[in-house]
Amino acid sequence: MTTALRLQVRRPAGGETELSLAVPSALEYVGPAVELIAVELPGGPLSARRIQFNFRTALAEALANAIAYGNRHDPDRLVQIRVEVGRDAVRLHVTDEGNGFNPADVPDPTRPDRLECEDGRGLFVLRHLVDQVAFNEKGNSVCLTLRAG
């Protein structure tokens, strides 16, 4: 890792806390980026267990997908992460600079013929970790919602 990650935290009075981070397109940044955000995530809407497992895993999945499939490991491209921490939910936005994709084209990794494939489980896992997965029309930005609990 050659670039230092710089997390920005905004805590407006009475408003939602917002964390944002720009991540270079290299997979070695995934773990450090996830930890940097997870440890700064204010307690409140999510239990410690959901932060430990659901939040961390979902962020790692979305970030790795954005780096590998969105930005295609291009060192000139960044992945933007923005986390909105509200009273009722945490919304996690991950945006890459790629051309997007159609989530409907991703095959079910639990099909018997796909079970022994090494890749292809990311989106499936994401959908089970969070309460809502919403892509923008282009398919290069995903919003993951974890409701309070």
């Binding site: 497992f53 961390r56 895993t57 999945e61 022994e116 494939c117 489980r121 990311g122 896992v125």
Partner: peptide, 17 residues
Amino acid sequence: TGYIDSSGLGVLVSLSK
């Protein structure tokens, strides 16, 4: 272990094979 992502699952599948 705290968490495993889909790449982690994938490497276990590959090693098992």
